[in-house]
Amino acid sequence: MKLLTHNMLSCHIKGVTNGFPFKIEATEVSETEADYDPDFLRHIFPRLQWPALKEGAESLGVTGLPDEVTEELLQDEDFLKAFHHALLEVTLQEGALVCPETGRKFPVMKGIPNLLLNEDEC
């Protein structure tokens, strides 16, 4: 699972009000190579929750993303390359997504998070 996917997911257990973003527990992280496309990065940026991306990247061992992103940064190649790498190349293979409110862990195996709830959680 890439961090772009992580940026869209939240915990939906009944009664949870602050289920976003999942904290990440990583036991295995890999990297793939993705095509670098600055236009796509600028297209997707307004939809992202930046603090969640930054925090997610840190839990996968990727540091150095800024706290805030300005219009100027979105034109800066060094920044865009780091953004690209964190968003589309770093992959969580094994670990868990942890609900920030309840601590419930959703396992991630072979890169696939299992978000199915137990009956008493629906």
Binding site: M1, K2, L4, T5, N7, M8, L9, S10, H12, F20, T32, A34, R47, Q49, L88, G111, I112, P113, N114, L115, L116
Partner: peptide, 20 residues
């Protein structure tokens, strides 16, 4: 660049409002 997620498609709209 394909990610897979295990979830119930029938309720995904309500359960995962950020998933777009």
């Amino acid at each position: 660049p394909v990610d897979l997620v295990q979830c119930d498609v029938n309720t995904v709209g309500e359960a995962q409002p950020g998933l777009q």
